[in-house]
């Protein structure tokens, strides 16, 4: 059990999200960086899909009201447990009464705090993720607040933890000169843009604007216009879809986006790269690279290999401790 000690606006409880309720108008929600969420849980021996807290605002402070294993992943930086300092991407066992502070990151922008056993909020429509528009899931369907208490599911493993893991920000090439490359599969309206507009899109260095959040990332760069105005009927969309509204500035729809939309779609960021957007802070730059489904599958394999390596390290540890 933990109690939130700091202002927690924009912090929410998330797992992998709600994947089979879009037919009711329900968006997926779910963690912005699912690779970090999975790793945080693996480090504690939890199922990968266990709920944790997604934290985009720092410093974030919680008090453990009972002994509890925890891990902090997502960002690279530091945490304090009372007066002792630890890096993020670390698993440790806290004692009742200890206060954990997650400090401003050095790299990345969303931290995940996982608890041994996983955060225990009700499963609604197959997920514990917070659905803000529907006001359900997570803790009472809302963002966390100072004073909130969150229980953990009883953990089965009580061995004390004290180890770290190298983050995907370091293990999988993340950024170069403040620029993050995202791989894209083109979408329905791609061919309604002229060659020059397409080249602009691929060659632009897009800036992540302050209007970027869990709903979508609004990018700024040279405007992209279709040959003629595009009319589309409302249809289903997935997280990662890059829409280009009439203003010509792309929006990447993300986990809290509506499950349907009507703006022209230029392409979709591949699922394997969505975690990179989750760690792309406001002010960073994004470049897009066109890939095939084959390349996308290879990228997903690379993510899986990373998690497999994490698991292998943990299971070796467990076998001997």
């Amino acid at each position: 059990m933990i109690e939130i000690m700091s202002s927690a606006a924009l912090c929410t409880v998330q797992d992998f999200g709600r994947l089979t309720s879009r037919q009711y108008g329900v968006g997926t929600a779910g963690a912005m960086d699912q690779l970090s969420l999975a790793a945080a849980n693996i480090m504690l021996g939890n199922p990968e899909n266990s709920a944790s807290i997604e934290i985009p605002i720092f410093p974030f402070k919680v008090r453990f009201t009972q002994d509890c294993d925890f891990s902090v992943t997502g960002t690279e930086g530091e945490v304090s447990l009372d007066n002792s300092r630890l890096p993020t991407w670390w698993a440790y066992s806290a004692k009742a009464g200890q206060v954990l502070t997650i400090h401003q990151p050095k790299k990345g922008c969303r931290a995940y705090l996982a608890l041994g056993g996983g955060i225990d909020v009700p499963i609604v429509l197959g997920s514990r993720s917070t659905q803000l528009r529907g006001e359900f899931g997570g803790l009472e369907g809302r963002m966390l607040q100072k004073g909130d208490c969150l229980p953990a599911i009883q953990a089965t493993d009580n061995r004390p933890l004290d180890f770290g893991m190298t983050s995907p920000l370091s293990a999988l090439a993340f950024e170069q000169e403040n620029t993050i490359e995202l791989r894209v599969v083109t979408a329905a309206e791609y061919d309604e843009y002229a060659t020059e507009a397409k080249e602009l899109f691929w060659n632009n260095r897009w800036k992540v604007t302050p209007q970027s959040n869990r709903y979508g990332y609004r990018l700024h760069g040279t405007e992209i216009r279709p040959e003629k105005p595009i009319e589309t009927l409302s249809h289903g969309i997935v997280p990662g879809v890059i829409q280009i509204p009439p203003g010509g500035q792309p929006i990447i729809q993300l986990r809290d986006a509506q499950p349907s939309g009507g703006y022209p779609k230029f392409g979709t960021v591949i699922e394997a790269d969505l975690w990179r957007i989750g760690q792309a802070a406001i002010g960073k730059h994004i470049v897009f690279k066109e890939v095939s489904l084959k390349d996308a599958a290879a990228a997903m394999q690379q993510n899986k290999r990373y998690l497999d390596d994490v698991k292998q390290m943990i299971s070796l540890q467990e076998a001997f401790v």
């Binding site: 599969v185 329905a188 009927l233 990662g240 879809v241 979709t268 591949i270 394997a272 996308a296 599958a297």
Partner: peptide, 18 residues
């Protein structure tokens, strides 16, 4: 018209009009 929604979706759009 059949198109891709990244690596997790396929979209089939029937011919107009609605």
């Amino acid at each position: 018209f059949i198109s891709l929604l990244g690596t997790s979706g396929i979209l089939l759009q029937a011919p107009a009009p609605l």
